[in-house]
């Protein structure tokens, strides 16, 4: 599973412009819908944790890796997501250093500053306006109804569909006896 996970994240690496956030719907489709490694609720929760945690937002890959395949999975997922992009950066920065004495360089430097300052302001604004990155209305609706269905099953003393380790859900039986009492 770690290997599949690694190959998947490696294939996303060169698409992570601006971090992983724009690709979250795609990751959710693969991990939750295609592979069934996580429930939609689990995925939402990991997304929330990654938003709150410090560090680059690509760290959500290590959370997914951890849930799917333990510590090895977390390291493989993060490395796979970062390495191809890092290799590209390595090559491009080499080319860029070679431009050091070009007459274009001061021109480019002056041109870069206003858009970059604008982007950082916009970044602050985007953080300040609560939003769930990349989740469509249908996805939210789907998840809301799935939650309702899961709660209903738990109340009736059954493990919900897709639950992890249902055989260990020893307290579920008490739920149903309580609700019948």
């Amino acid at each position: 599973m770690s290997i599949q996970l690694g190959l998947y994240f490696a294939s996303l690496s060169l698409l992570t412009f601006g971090g992983l956030s724009p690709l979250i719907p795609e990751v959710q489709r693969y991990i939750v819908d295609t592979k069934g490694w996580l429930t939609p609720m689990d995925f939402m929760q990991l997304f929330a944790v990654a938003q709150a945690a410090p560090g680059p937002n690509v760290l959500i890959a290590s959370l997914i890796g951890y849930r799917v395949a333990g510590f090895t999975g977390s390291l493989i997922a993060l490395a796979a997501l970062c390495l191809p992009a890092a290799a590209l950066t390595w090559v491009v920065s080499g080319l860029w250093e070679r431009l050091r004495n070009s007459p274009w360089r001061p021109l480019i430097q002056r041109a870069l500053l206003p858009p970059l300052v604008g982007l950082i302001f916009a970044g602050g604004y985007v953080i300040a306006t609560p939003h769930v990155g990349g989740l469509t209305l249908q996805a939210i609706e789907h998840q809301a109804f799935e939650t309702v269905a899961q709660v209903a099953e738990i109340v009736q003393g059954r493990a919900p569909k897709g639950a992890v380790n249902p055989q260990h859900a020893t307290r579920l039986a008490k739920m149903s006896s309580r609700s019948e009492a």
Partner: peptide, 18 residues
């Protein structure tokens, strides 16, 4: 700093990681 970050922003991968 500006130049480095701007370059990294145009490449895939986490900005500060790049």
């Amino acid at each position: 700093f500006t130049e480095t970050i701007a370059l990294c922003q145009l490449l895939p991968g986490p900005n500060i990681g790049n």
